[in-house]
Design a protein around this nucleic acid. Structure first.
Lengths: 327, 327
DNA sequence: TTGAAAGCGCTAACAC
DNA sequence: GTGTTAGCGCTTTCAA
């Protein structure tokens, strides 16, 4: 910038004005400055700008895994909102590791992102308290924050699961299995709670062997499903706790002779083209991201409402697998 | 930091040493500084650090659409490599709009990312010349840069498509349709070239009505497929130019009575569970990201080889749809 | 309309 | 081992 000023024969501040689009510069002067900028290939250094202004025009997004199809649309939605506000997105995957989440979040804070959207892996976010006090707007998505009071936007896991399981019950099932994510994860326990509520609501008992929480790794899920489908009194239907579980269960069921009903939480591409089509409880990942980002930018614009919990509804989409009668 | 120094009763530089993990500080002094840091909830401001050091420890990733399942694994792979080098990822979607790509890239440069990984939307990247000269390492992925000489990592679109089409020919097809992405996109034309090469190699003519390039929007693709399957001499097989086209074609074929063979470029989840399973030419999106990021960090480490083109092999995965005989 | 000086928070270089 | 000074590239303040 110094060089540009020298070449254009003007003061430093004049260049700053032109680059920043501030008023108060003669067209003629502006032309000279622009010329020097072109000639020197000058681009303003935003790091210096940030240092001075205190705002980075960037928001951090910490999620579990960028490669998971559930998070793609969510990220994209956050990005679009950020873009509308002139902000860039800095993001990272926690790989469902609380320590890695913490490192990532603190790294983002050190870079002074204006705001933070977090899909938490851990269950204790007190480490964020100083940051939030220091002015970093923070919104949690998909799962609530642990041990701090913060905005959270999530899907109605409890209600969605209850509706999905009730759907199976309505189609005559009485022995229904539940395979879900690790119990450390909020959505997993909420969905299990929904399952239990639906069973209890219909006066049905739940056998311990019908419930399996744990890693969504295919081997674990396959083992759980196979076990529930074996024995003299196998389950006649399965409820899958998220998209990865559902996909693995579909694979298992493709290999069984007797038809087994299935409802999965989360919609996924091509679910309608499988035979039978997979009945799902769909949540709107993009809406989750959009609502969270909107909330974030409200706060960045100065609004300071008390932290709130927003719960988005889910939608049951019958496609065949959930309407199969008990074998 | 000033406050920390005051509270600990030490000089500014000593705090800097402790925070930066530099040697040459008594354990006792270090303890006092740490204490002050805790008490004040101090976190180093990386913007200032960047300004001083000249490196941001961040890399920019510009792709077409974060929500596209093809880019998820690619982003994640880049992220992992970046993480191994202590860098964060700043990313954005160009939405296949050259102007938006340019804005995004320049915004990233203004923030002084150390390096840039770009999946180009446009075909003229001369606007990047000053940046590259200024030291921003740049690697293009999936498609080559336009009108500048830069590193590029891509899949063997030509060879993969040729192999896929040859596979259909080997199974007896002579009238084969090709539905691909917009001709502006490098991979689309390369795959078309592969198609033509396979047909020519087998001495088969190509009717103009068998080839359709354009948007991957479902309506357009459905129209193209339907047209090729109509008339007295319909195609007996289709080659789909990318994952989105393939998915739409699968939907169209699910509604036809007569069996039509299909090979798609790009693998996708559940392709094996459809009936018939979808034969694909698979590319390794994660490898694409990993190789590109490795190359980027080599450059950042000081290596300055001439820009090179790395082409990753594709793999034909027969699953049924590509082995159907002509109707 | 324009510019000079101060300073954002940090680290490199060089004292002590 | 520790502190002091200068300055990274920009914007803010205030004077011309």
């Amino acid at each position: 910038m110094k060089d540009v000023a020298a070449r254009a024969g003007v003061g430093l501040k004049t260049v700053s004005r032109v680059v920043g689009g501030e008023p108060g510069v003669t067209p003629e002067t502006e032309r000279r400055v622009q010329e020097a900028i072109e000639a020197l290939g000058f681009r303003r250094n935003d790091s210096a700008r940030v240092l001075r202004k205190g705002r980075t025009a960037s928001v951090g997004l910490v999620l579990e895994d960028l490669a998971d199809p559930f998070y793609g649309p969510l990220s994209r939605a956050v990005e679009e909102v950020a873009r509308a506000h002139g902000a860039l997105l800095v993001n990272g995957s926690s790989a469902e590791d609380p320590e890695r989440e913490r490192e990532l979040v603190l790294a983002l804070c050190a870079r002074r992102v204006d705001g933070l959207i977090v899909i938490p892996a851990g269950d204790d976010h007190r480490y964020l308290e100083p940051e939030i006090r220091a002015g970093v707007a923070t919104v949690f998505v998909d799962r609530p924050a642990g041990r701090i009071d913060a905005d959270v936007v999530l899907s109605d896991s409890f209600g969605g699961a209850r509706e999905g399981v009730a759907h199976l019950i309505a189609h005559g099932h009485r022995r229904i299995g539940f395979i879900g994510d690790h119990p450390r994860i909020h959505t997993a326990t909420e969905r299990l709670r929904g399952y239990r509520a639906a069973m209890a609501g219909a006066g049905l008992p739940v056998d311990d062997s019908w419930v399996s929480l744990g890693s969504t790794e295919p081997g674990r899920v396959t083992g759980a499903a196979t076990a529930m489908l074996a024995g003299p009194e196998p389950v006649t239907a399965l409820f899958a706790g998220n998209n990865r579980v559902t996909v693995t269960v579909v694979r298992v069921l493709a290999g069984t002779s007797r038809p087994v009903a299935l409802v999965g939480f989360d919609d996924f591409e091509l679910a309608d083209l499988l035979r039978p089509g997979v009945t799902v409880v769909a949540q709107d990942a993009a809406a989750l991201g959009r609502v969270a980002a909107d909330r974030l930018f409200q706060r960045l614009a100065g609004a300071a409402p008390a932290p709130a919990r927003v719960e988005l509804p889910t939608r049951l989409i019958p496609r065949g697998s959930g309407e199969l009668p008990p074998a």
